[in-house]
Design a protein around this nucleic acid. Structure first.
Lengths: 241, 241
DNA sequence: CGAACCATTGATGAGGCTCAAAACTCGTGG
DNA sequence: CCACGAGTTTTGAGCCTCATCAATGGTTCG
């Protein structure tokens, strides 16, 4: 059951070399430059490949260098809940730093690259990244709380819009076009994260498209009218056309 | 708007003295003994008194010594989401350790006592409690995820039962009777936490009572048939009587 | 004793889930 | 190159759970 989820790849390329690829100073850059001071092990994953499963012994943290992951928890009777979608700059495995085993599943949604940070080595790096680990833990809590608020108080359309705007903002900080969203997850996964069914997600997207706020083409979504989306999110019943 | 939320009280009593009050070795004891090595400032709060509000400058962490708190986040347009109910052994303000201002509201639901841990002093205590802070942050994330799973996948009755069983387990670790739950929150607050309306909470409790699983008397709830509750939680449609 | 506040119960309706079917995408192999 | 099949997305129809609105009774506190 616990096959080796990842395959170890070549050592990281030269320390300055990794930098020149980047067009801009991303939010992720600060942490990355820190990590490059200790040569991290690099792993590449294929779409739908698991990085780790809940219950597996935890030896490392993983820094997401590229690609998109979903993290999820499972109940005893098999119900799944996706707790987040992780992209460049995120740390996987943080939620169980204090435990010997992972507390969630991490699955690559597309081709991805992660840098492994063995716990043993993590001790050496302290306290330089200790405060950053703490900050990322606290940040995860605040992010979770905001989604709990959204899921608990917003309607279906509003939740979907909130997701699109959130993703757009994350794209912006990563130097990507915030108006052109390339989703890496299925409607079912999106619905699971938002506590909706896949049909409801689809219908919400169709409604937004009918209002001319977005253009939907499968998993490619273009934001046409961000202000309109924000109005929907704010609850203003758009009477358009 | 930002009145002084708390009133400073007398210095803590002697270090060994605080211990003799405890009948048993609680889960909370380990952290408490640690904190007592630095004399913490003690604050007492009255029911419905705020410990801090979101946005207020953050100078300290607060250890809950007694009483019950609710922590909540607010959206721009006034929607509230209760993120948890905190009891003895919990730390308030952890979610914003990396920030200059609080990220949530903390409100005492009954008479409560907290120990203040100023950030300045926190530096001295490191690294002795550093690992504990990290563990509590990660633990909060896992707890949030489990509730996101419950709220996202369970029906109304199941959510209420999950809450009762969770509270019962917490009572047990605190040395209280796990079958006799004294709720400190209103039905509306409970519903908010579970993403239900207060009426739905009431009805769920009434149904469980009708099935003979609990006895409800206002905020006093006695668990009569824990196995039955677990069956409801597991989704087994109880066809009783 | 009155005034809030809280809890309970009922009636009604809407939002979203379930079930079902069809169109579409994509990788595989004939 | 096209056909096939699995997985995904879209759309429709009907139903069910839970939110909403409303009324009553209980409790606490000034």
């Amino acid at each position: 059951m616990f096959q080796n989820a990842i395959s170890i790849q070549a050592a990281p390329r030269g320390h300055a070399g990794g930098w020149s690829e980047d067009r801009q100073q991303h939010a992720a850059s600060v942490l990355e430059s820190l990590l490059l001071r200790w040569p991290p092990r690099v792993h590449r994953l294929e779409p739908r490949q698991a990085l780790f499963h809940a219950g597996q012994p935890r030896h490392s943290l993983y820094y997401v260098r590229s690609g998109c992951f979903k993290t999820s928890v499972l109940s005893e009777d098999g119900r799944e809940k996706i707790t987040g979608f992780r992209m460049r700059g995120d740390l996987l495995g943080l939620d169980s730093v204090d435990m010997p085993a992972h507390a969630c599943d991490a699955l690559a949604l597309d081709a991805a690259e992660v840098w492994e940070l063995p716990c043993a080595r993590l001790q050496d790096m302290l306290p330089e990244i200790q405060s950053r680990v703490t900050a990322m833990l606290a940040g995860e809590i605040r992010r979770d709380w905001r989604w709990m608020l959204a899921v608990g108080t917003l309607g279906a359309d509003q939740r979907v819009v909130a997701f699109l705007l959130d993703l757009s903002a994350r794209f912006a900080t990563l130097g990507l076009d915030p108006a052109l969203l390339q989703l890496r997850m299925t409607r079912a996964e999106l619905g699971n994260f938002l506590s909706l069914t896949l049909e409801t997600v689809t219908r919400a997207l169709s409604r937004m498209q009918a209002r001319g706020m977005i253009e939907v083409c499968g998993r490619r979504i273009r934001i046409v009218d961000e202000a309109g989306l924000r109005a929907v999110l704010a609850g203003e019943d758009a009477r358009c056309h």
